[in-house]
């Protein structure tokens, strides 16, 4: 099997425990080459821990992690040379200036594109003389993104890239991601709890819940198998695959999981009045699924 046909990331049975807290619990995940892979989940679900394993910053306590077919702990220099990473913490050294950051980072990546870096810097409106510690939160994210993008990585890892940022900066970051994806064969791992962003750019989504991957499919598949239904009924409707149900006066708003025909047939049989039927947003789906009790976790799969 050639690398070109292989997944960028292959994780098997990965578990991680911080003393009594289980951060990852037997995670199996494959990130295919090309496209944007969204990693969503609530705060503390285990997204960052998963990313740290991909980068080799954490050693797998059990299970295995392969990136480009290699173990990132054993060969970090090879793996990391092909990865661009934007940290959630924006842990750039505060004493550096933007120009110094660019020069410093360029030394590590033979494929560093200076012209592209300057172009990004101008697009992000970053002053080369500015110290990192004096940057605003949005500028800090842009500086980190510049360092992560300018060597045109095969695999771009963005850990909560737009957390706490305003709409303008988020738009810039998303545009940069789209540009990266436009390059052939590049892969983006986009971790966020801002689901509308993920929905906008991701081709595939994995949902992390309490250290487990509970959903791992394409956005098209999610949209095809999840339905928002608004019904008018006297009692709470009981549809197959129902994930959430909210009452608004005499109307009931439901999020269902299953084939469209199955849901429609059930509504017809029960005699409820169908007010509206559409595709729910990723946020609706996540909230509906997160609303499920932990005991029904297995039903998610």
């Amino acid at each position: 099997m050639t690398e070109a046909n292989d997944a960028v990331v292959r994780i098997t049975g990965l578990s991680r425990r911080y003393r009594r807290t289980v951060a990852l619990d037997g995670v199996d995940l494959e990130i295919p080459r090309g496209g944007v892979f969204g990693l969503v989940g609530e705060n503390g679900a285990g997204k960052t821990t998963l990313i740290k394993h991909i980068l080799g910053l954490l050693r797998a306590q059990s299970g295995s992690v392969e990136v480009f077919g290699l173990n990132p702990v054993k060969t970090p220099e090879t793996v990391l040379g092909r990865i661009g990473y934007l940290s959630e913490d924006r842990d750039l050294p505060g004493w550096m200036r933007i120009r110094e950051l660019m020069d410093y980072t360029a030394a590590f990546y033979p494929k560093w594109d200076s012209a592209y870096a300057d172009k990004l810097r101008e697009a992000f409106e970053l002053d080369p003389a500015a110290r990192i510690r004096n940057l605003s939160r949005g500028q800090l994210a842009k500086a980190g993104l510049l360092a992560a993008l300018a060597h045109r990585p095969e695999f771009l890892v963005l850990d909560e890239p737009s957390s706490g940022l305003d709409v303008i900066v988020r738009r810039d970051i998303l545009a940069a991601i789209i540009r990266t994806v436009a390059d052939e064969g590049r892969t983006v791992l986009f971790s966020s709890h801002l689901l509308d962003e993920v929905e906008r750019v991701a081709d595939r989504v994995a949902m992390v819940y309490h250290g487990k991957i509970v959903v791992n499919t394409t956005m098209d598949d999610i949209r095809a198998t999840h339905h928002r239904v608004v019904l008018r009924a006297s009692t709470a409707p009981d549809l197959p695959g129902i994930l959430s149900c909210q009452q608004r006066g005499s109307e009931w708003s439901l999020v269902c999981h299953g084939e469209l025909e199955t849901v429609q047939a059930a509504i017809h049989r029960a005699g409820w009045e169908l007010v509206e039927m559409c595709s729910p947003s990723l946020e609706d789906i996540f909230v509906a699924r997160a609303g499920k009790s932990a005991s029904s976790l297995e039903d998610w799969k």
Binding site: K52, L57, P76, E77, R82, I83, D91, P93
Partner: peptide, 16 residues
Amino acid sequence: ARNRSFIFTKPMRTAA
């Protein structure tokens, strides 16, 4: 602790 991921995500051998 603050700069850990910045330092250690550089494509460089640990010995280097």
